[in-house]
Design a binder for these strands. Structure first.
Lengths: 168, 168
DNA sequence: AGGCAATTGTTATAATATAACATGCTTACT
DNA sequence: AGTAAGCATGTTATATTATAACAATTGCCT
């Protein structure tokens, strides 16, 4: 497990508390329940900007919820995804907090192979080009996943921890 | 398992044989071995334009290769992905033939929830907008996955087999 | 022949995810 | 109050996806 350099310009405690506050407000406004379990799972996901695996979350959740089982975590994750509070990172089978829950969140995820951090970007130009292409194809969209694997700025000069070879 | 309407303008036998011929030529040119197992797996994947699961492939492969085990299939899949002959569909944990092995294949996959067919599109406008965005972020790309879930033209007027609710 | 690399065989197990049914808790209606 | 309905959670079991570790085989090179 590689440790990231904390971005000095980034107050992560604030980052977490904002995410949680927003989530609480959204759920309140929508009349859905951000129960203790769901809140804890969300908080655990927001503990970093890395993508977190379901079973990692389970291990982290167990001390807080003695009865926690895989299903417990997956149910919470399902809820959080439905509410747009987290993203599922398809290419990693992992999960990451979503910063854009109140807007139309068109996710473009930059996934660093070195530090596992995931940066979410808006990229309206990409999205409009994409929408146009999809319309051309006569396709009706339900969801989009754009996932870019590579190395982030911070890790650019570091060696990869272990390569998985794939270059597309 | 929903059955698709065969596209009348599409000679799939030709489609398969072209894909296999191309694959053979490419492997020959690259000095890598498209062994019987690998060839069979590729052919099984090309049997449709649907995304196929590894264990489905295993079941299909067993009659042809008595000793086939999960590893057998995954090794063949790894090879085919490395050679750019198939795509891994991350959002389905499944695999689909790649039509663009000789070019730089930047995949944009349109995945129909109804018929499971996957359409691959080039979309250079999308890709250039995407590259620009990635450069802006100072990110070094290793691989890209753009996967759009929805309903294709052919299935537009049919009811969904079963919804999985997620809308992003 | 001997050695090396690549492929495949074999066994076992890890990692990811869901099914099915039971329990408890709130609300809302009568 | 009684009870039905909806929801979240508990509990047990199992399905699905993927890899590790080591042995055997094959083809090729010298």
């Amino acid at each position: 497990m590689t440790q990231t350099l904390p971005d000095p310009a980034h107050n992560h405690k604030l980052c977490i508390s904002q995410a949680l506050t927003t989530a609480e407000q959204l759920c309140g406004a929508r009349g859905v329940q951000l129960t203790p379990i769901r809140h804890q799972v969300l908080e655990l996901i927001w503990a970093s900007h890395k993508a977190v695996k379901a079973y990692e979350l389970l291990d982290l959740l167990k001390p807080l919820q003695h009865a926690a089982k895989p299903v417990t975590v997956y149910r919470a994750l399902d809820f959080l995804i439905e509410q747009g509070l987290i993203h599922r990172v398809e290419s990693l089978n992992a999960f990451v907090g979503c910063r854009c829950s109140d807007k139309q969140h068109e996710q473009l995820l930059l996934i660093c192979k070195h530090c596992q951090e995931v940066e979410e970007r808006y990229a309206p130009e990409v999205m409009s080009a994409l929408s146009e292409e999809i319309n051309k194809a006569g396709f009706t969209v339900h969801s989009k996943a754009i996932e870019i694997q590579g190395v982030c700025t911070a890790c650019r000069h570091l060696p990869l921890p272990q390569s998985n070879g794939q270059t597309t």
